[in-house]
Simulated assay, not measured.
Amino acid sequence: MGRGIGMAAASAGLTALLLSGCTAAPVPAPPPVTVTATVTATPTPTPTPTPQAAPPPEPVAPAPVPNAPAPVVEWGPAYDTGARPGASATPVLDAAGVPFSYTVVEGDSFFDIAQRFELPQQQLLRMNPQIHDFGETVYIGDVINLDWTKTG
């Protein structure tokens, strides 16, 4: 028994001896590495313009065209429809028998005179600039022109 233990111990010692030579030799430290960094500015990219639709053209207003004055259509010669309330005097006639003038008498109104002689009141006012207040006021003895060719 003594021998078996001695042998086993010798074998273990030999194995340990043999294995001790198998360890790696220490690796020397690598030499220091020097790193040089160079900083270069990153170029700013030039933006590509986004295509945009062209703005619509400004509307061009047409040149103003002045209106021609409205034509003044004067009705034909006065036509006497006869005496009536508000226009009862006798008119003065020209050589052709057409009423030429009318003299206001009591109770007459400018509107009734225009109606009697079939003339628009505005035309009769244009023919008689001496009448004021749009014909609202006429006086006994006023002479009203009924001849549209002799206005003013």
Rank of each mutant, 00 (worst) to 15 (best):
P66T: 13
F111Q: 08
V143E: 14
L146M: 07
S101Q: 05
P43N: 08
S101P: 04
S101G: 08
P85W: 01
N128T: 08
T137E: 10
P99L: 02
L125D: 09
T15K: 04
P30H: 02
T149D: 07
M127K: 02
Q52R: 06
V73Q: 14
A96C: 03
G76V: 05
P64A: 12
P49F: 05
T42Y: 07
T44D: 03
H132G: 13
S88T: 11
A89C: 07
P59T: 14
A61F: 03
L14D: 01
G13A: 15
L119R: 01
E74M: 10
S101F: 02
T90A: 12
A78Q: 02
L119S: 00
S101K: 06
A16P: 02
E118I: 01
V60W: 00
T23W: 15
F110V: 04
D142W: 13
L14R: 01
V92R: 01
E58P: 00
W75G: 07
W75C: 03
P71N: 10
I144Y: 03
T46Y: 06
T151F: 14
Y102C: 04
F100V: 01
V138W: 12
P57F: 02
T81K: 04
P56C: 07
V60S: 04
T46I: 15
A37D: 05
T36M: 07
S101N: 06
A8F: 13
V39N: 06
T36D: 06
V105C: 08
A37E: 09
A70V: 15
R84V: 05
D112I: 01
G152P: 05
I113K: 06
Q52H: 04
P31R: 04
G152I: 08
A68P: 14
E74K: 14
P51S: 11
F110Q: 09
L19A: 15
S88Y: 02
S101W: 03
T23P: 02
T81Y: 04
N128H: 09
A8I: 08
E118H: 00
T151K: 13
R116C: 01
V65Y: 10
T50G: 03
L17A: 13
A68F: 12
P47K: 01
P57I: 04
V104Q: 14
Y139M: 11
T81N: 06
P85M: 00
M7W: 15
Y79P: 00
E118P: 00
A61G: 02
A41S: 11
T38F: 04
R3H: 15
